[in-house]
Nucleic acid binder design. Structure first.
Lengths: 238, 238
DNA sequence: GCATTGCAAAATGCATACAGTTTTAGCATG
DNA sequence: CATGCTAAAACTGTATGCATTTTGCAATGC
């Protein structure tokens, strides 16, 4: 019996979905730009890092590929997806439609508790704005995902989440470094519009916000790096 | 371009032509209502039917689960997804947005060859309208998917395809049997509007068409059946 | 009659082995 | 120094085996 198995038994964990755990870790690494588009993701190293076999790592890669975050080519090492400029444009177009639906469902219907939670998330964004760029981007993304979650509509949540992560990945390709991709003030205005109600006002605000985010992504960043996958993922392996 | 190749592009997965082949077969069986919501899909039987190991069957099920066509629960047999009424409503809401984008991209820009191809597809629908109900539904779905493909936008194609299949699955749950879910004449009008051009007219037509499809789905069909998975899939295993 | 228990069969979760392909590294050659 | 060749290393594709969990069903008790 392997070390991991013993650990599992001792901690009482029934082997709760390890594929999902890896997906979550990788999504986070990608959205925080710890993993950049094109970075390689060999099944072996992944499995080793997370203490599972290739089977599990492979399954996680398949899942992420279905979400558009990973590129799989036959007999080739998986890589973090590299969205084309056209892809990025299409992703944002779809994102606008989806998030408009979120706004329509939420405008004027947020509870006090929800408003409070959203504000605290924006506060966290504010705190992080001079720290690591990756954290800011993740927090901004999580704000949008949280909004979707507040609709309570599983299908909408799923698509908004996916498209937000893909948008974040696209920005990693096309936005210049250190451009604040999601202005904190815009999120605050959005909350206010959602709280006070008029649907059209809130929709417009969301559209303008997303269009602004997309517009800020203009220059292409390159940056050859030589980093170790094992090191990058260290903080993400549970 | 072959069906499989298109599939590869759409899902971004080349990993295993065999996985893709099973996905295609199952999608088709589901959209044709040969497989109904709730039907069980054991890895063993699937693998046996398609001549592959459980590994491959399992991977295909994972892919379809990511697309919302299959329900996976830990340690349980996979089943064809059973969308709730709310899911169905949300799926159609998203579908309207996505297909509106398709229309906006295509209106007034279709080539003669494309118009011809679309018309021939509608003709096929017309031919099939008194045959097996499943075939009609599949052809109608393929019409919408083909429209999306004509935009040449991979991201849009992927989401429209997925949402169309999910919509078809939803109709299997909620539409009464023998209600023609996608009127042939509406598809013809749509082609005409796309050909002659005015974007707004075409958009409105698409919205009305999809709203009509959704509206026709009112009663719930039940139907306990005792059928063999092996038999059902016989015509779908290449 | 109906709920409950127990057990064998069935099915999944996961690791691993092996075959086949791609990538890499080293080395010889021009 | 660049280029091409070759063999080893690295990596993926797939099947299979074992452990664990669920399921079907008959026996049991109320």
């Amino acid at each position: 019996m392997s070390e991991e198995k013993r650990e599992e038994k001792r901690s009482g964990r029934t082997g709760g979905d390890r594929v999902a755990a890896i997906c979550i870790a990788l999504r986070r690494a990608i959205i925080e730009r710890a993993l950049l588009p094109g970075d390689r993701l060999p099944e072996d190293s992944l499995g080793e890092r997370f203490g599972v076999s290739r089977t599990i790592a492979r399954s996680a890669l398949g899942q992420l590929a279905a979400e558009g975050l990973v590129d799989l080519r036959r007999n080739r090492i998986a890589v973090v997806a590299v969205p084309s400029f056209e892809d990025a444009r299409d992703i944002f177009d779809i994102r606008v439609d989806l998030e408009r639906q979120v706004v329509r469902h939420l405008a004027g219907k947020l509870t006090e508790a929800q408003v409070k939670q959203l504000k605290s998330m924006v506060e966290a964004e504010h705190q992080a704005r001079h720290g690591a760029e990756g954290i800011s981007i993740r927090l901004a993304t999580e704000f949008h995902v949280r909004l979707a979650e507040m609709t309570g509509k599983p299908v909408l949540i799923r698509y908004v989440t996916e498209i937000c992560y893909r948008a974040g990945l696209s920005l990693a390709v096309f936005s210049r470094p250190h451009s604040s991709d999601c202005a904190v003030s815009e999120h605050l205005e959005l909350i206010e519009a959602l709280r006070t109600g008029p649907v059209e006002k809130a929709c417009t605000l969301m559209e303008e916000h997303l269009e602004a985010v997309a517009s800020r992504a203009l220059l292409q960043s390159s940056g050859a790096r030589s980093r170790s996958l094992m090191d990058i993922l260290a903080p993400y392996a549970e």
